[in-house]
Design a protein around this nucleic acid. Sequence first.
DNA 1: TTGAAAGCGCTAACAT
DNA 2: ATGTTAGCGCTTTCAA
Lengths: 329, 329
Amino acid sequence: MAKYTINDVAKAAGVSKATVSRYLNGRFERMSLATRRKIKAVIADLGYVPNYNASALKSKRSHQIGVVVGDVSNVYSTFLIKGISGVTRTRQDQILIADGGEDPQQETVAIKNLLSQNVDGIILQPARPDASGYQFLKDAGVPVVLVDRLLRPLLFPCVTSNDTASGKLLAQAALEKGYQNVIVLSHPVDQATVRYERYRAFAAVCRGANIPINLLEVEDADDVSGLRAALDAAQSMKSVIFATNGILLMAALRWLQQQQIAVPKQVGLCGYDDWNWGELANPPLAVVNQNPEKIGREVALRLEQLIAGKEVFVGRTEVPAEVHIRESL
Amino acid sequence: MAKYTINDVAKAAGVSKATVSRYLNGRFERMSLATRRKIKAVIADLGYVPNYNASALKSKRSHQIGVVVGDVSNVYSTFLIKGISGVTRTRQDQILIADGGEDPQQETVAIKNLLSQNVDGIILQPARPDASGYQFLKDAGVPVVLVDRLLRPLLFPCVTSNDTASGKLLAQAALEKGYQNVIVLSHPVDQATVRYERYRAFAAVCRGANIPINLLEVEDADDVSGLRAALDAAQSMKSVIFATNGILLMAALRWLQQQQIAVPKQVGLCGYDDWNWGELANPPLAVVNQNPEKIGREVALRLEQLIAGKEVFVGRTEVPAEVHIRESL
DNA sequence: TTGAAAGCGCTAACAT
DNA sequence: ATGTTAGCGCTTTCAA
């Protein structure tokens, strides 16, 4: 693979490989300017590229951090990665992306693979809230920070959106418009603490206003036809749909358009928008934007601290979301 | 890091580490079922995780492939990664994502980092079309496949969308609606062959129909206000805007809405849509969808072949795009 | 069918 | 300011 080794550089520069190693690791303190320049020239000349596998073997630092997301094609993950990448790039670290597939088994395989690669740390959007499935990760002794979803008990530091607060704001805005019935469209709420919090926030506001709330759980965003029954059940009461993530929000709008149900005239719509298109939709959508890139930066900073050996509070850090009320309500 | 090594497993199982290594690499051909079972039990018992850095050092296979995209937060990249990830997962490979930042220097640093990590191969969406800046990659001898953009000369196999064909279809659809002036909104066309092809396809159709075409190049999708002057210059001629990528398409629609310019009544709009929201926009947009997930699969398959030592045609493979004509024209 | 031993490219004492 | 040396955890001949 690598054409030249540290030995080749050492020979060509007429120094020992220890000196070259010092050069590579930026320990110039007690190195003559002459050898420093010489080594630099030789490296450029040969096009030498150091082998991190070898250095990781010795130094226990791979300069790689693992990121396990639920679904790489989700735009939320995209911005998350962007945020993480901005932080790690300045640290010369690379990010190893693994797709957990929202599936505990696939996720476990992915995490073990990352451990095998000796990542310096892991950022994890866990597929399930039960901490017992992650004990092996804790035992591995690798720095871990959770993102977007909590574990019970927490086990690791965690960065999320302020879901309860944003959910409440959105719910209040919806109820002010006079809806008499609420339909929450979500993936199974007991599989992710955050979904549950969003649902709970909505439910709390509805209860306060004495408005009925129905939970419609779907496994797959491709089929939200269950909305039909939920709307029928509401009879003459005017309904608003609350989608707990961007995929479902998009799916709901698509379905409403196909069914030729006017929004917000016949049915209201609001939800979480990670895709930044809510403003451009027809009609413009009332949404919460979570600012996932910021979340990514925050989580990466915490991980870097852990890797540097600093203490990090094992608790939840909330990044404030933005709530945009628009015509869909 | 890893708590146990192959030595610990060997001792606990009462065999040599060579035997454990054979087990780990699935070479069971001439291994007694007893030892095989014994090793399996010990590994499970200890929770042993192999160290890929060490194995990579010896075997020259890191089971990592590098992916360099122009911008990780672009939805195109997202689906690309999804497609790649589906292929690599079945091969037990991990993907190292690097953000090239659409900047040759940052990209070069990213690629060198990937080489240092001894990736088995690289998938690259190059920031610039000039092959000379990538000679060092060619020299490194690592398998490389290009995606989305070509190099001149090509140097590596490449997978893209069929841009000329889809651009022509979109252009023809636009001109059939009777527009008298075309504005192409693009990032600098000479920095990416594919953008240039899209522009050229449009230009060719316009030339055939004797319709004037104006190229508006922007550096940053956050500022598309140059559209104002372009529209003014058209005077009374009815204009259609063609955005050469999803970000600009979104930016254009946002700008038109802010300026309260009715689409398609006053100005037509069409372009490339990697975000899958064209259908839901107001108005629904006439777009080309490139199918980036398919592109990701194709490019990953080619890379895996190269890694496996097979020959791959150093030429362009085109994945057909879908053209959707909708109300925005 | 299994083991012994050399070595992959690098780092980090310890010398000098 | 620089060199010597002993590994890091694994794979892979070669031998048994």
